[in-house]
């Protein structure tokens, strides 16, 4: 068959047929819900069960603009993202680099670190509830060695968000370490020999060879971590027993959305919160992509 001919109608049709199965699934389960939730965010009077729209407008967004709970949900979400993502990347990269240096037991440690990823978040939260316990918890026990008084992690509004951040970082490590290990293994070892001969010490080799060479993976992990952190919900739900922390101290945008939708049946407001979240993620991801153009080397 010639490749330089213009496709005929028959060939074009055939091409579309190949894409069709996936296209149908995407259209029904992704595109349609996205479009309808966008539409729903403008429904100010709406019967969810009969799908009757009585009135349209910007009232839902106005409500969010004025609701202090939504403000604190946005603020908490941003604090959570800023608290989790950088630490998550730095810690998992450090552990991956260390793990990459050892030959013995590397597989054993990889498995250990990977466990949080395969364990149910509900079970993990049970364990952390105990770790965070004010009187019997492991964390306060260790902190007592450095002279810090017991902190009521789960019931003190000041500490609820930090407790959540610690849990989220810990939970994400396993998978990110795995991804970093893959990237580290793919760096051409001869570059390290060359850099050593060029007079670079271990830190300079890390900075000038490792960091740029694994930057595509770092970018992937960062984007993934940002999106995941913006959507944080299940950790809160299971750690604080279905609540958004003491006095809504761990209220995030998705938790707010959940509460509006399932508990208060304010479907339009929930949809509007979703739209706001969508644009928050979009802006940050665009910023990351712009940044990556300069600093990620493929």
């Amino acid at each position: 068959m010639m490749n330089n001919q213009k496709p005929t109608w028959k060939q074009t049709l055939k091409g579309w047929l190949y894409v069709l199965p996936m296209l149908i699934i995407v259209a029904i389960f992704s595109l349609y819900p996205i479009v309808s939730s966008l539409a729903m965010s403008f429904y100010t009077q709406y019967n969810f069960f009969t799908n009757q729209v009585m009135a349209l407008g910007f009232d839902n967004f106005k409500y969010l603009w004025e609701d202090p709970l939504f403000h604190s949900a946005v603020a908490n979400t941003l604090i959570f993202v800023v608290g989790v993502v950088p630490l998550e990347i730095v810690i998992s990269l450090t552990v991956a680099v260390l793990l990459n240096q050892i030959k013995v037991l590397a597989g054993f440690f990889r498995t250990i670190y990977f466990l949080p990823f395969v364990t149910s978040i509900v079970a993990i939260s049970m364990v952390w509830k105990w770790i965070y316990n004010k009187d019997a918890g492991l964390l306060n026990y260790f902190l007592s060695f450095v002279g810090i008084h017991p902190i009521d992690w789960l019931n003190d509004p000041t500490w609820a968000l930090p407790a959540l951040i610690i849990l989220a970082i810990w939970k994400s490590l396993g998978f990110n370490i795995m991804l970093f290990l893959v990237a580290l293994n793919n760096v051409d070892k001869r570059l390290y020999s060359a850099a050593t001969l060029d007079g670079a010490n271990a830190w300079e080799r890390f900075l000038h060879v490792t960091v740029p060479m694994i930057s595509p993976m770092t970018f992937l992990i960062a984007v993934n971590a940002v999106i995941g952190s913006f959507k944080v919900f299940d950790e809160i739900f299971s750690l604080f027993g279905g609540q958004a922390g003491p006095g809504n101290a761990a209220m995030t945008v998705v938790f707010y959305l959940y509460r509006m939708f399932y508990e208060q049946n304010k479907y339009g407001i929930a949809a509007a919160a979703g739209v706001v979240l969508f644009f928050m993620i979009l802006i940050v991801t665009l910023l990351q992509t712009w940044f990556s153009k300069k600093h990620v080397h493929y």
């Binding site: 020999s193 060359a194 060479m213």
Partner: peptide
């Protein structure tokens, strides 16, 4: 103080 040229050159690609 040796200078070395590797078989695959090992230039820093970035």
């Amino acid at each position: 103080g040796v200078g070395m040229v590797f078989q695959n050159y090992a230039l820093y690609p970035h």
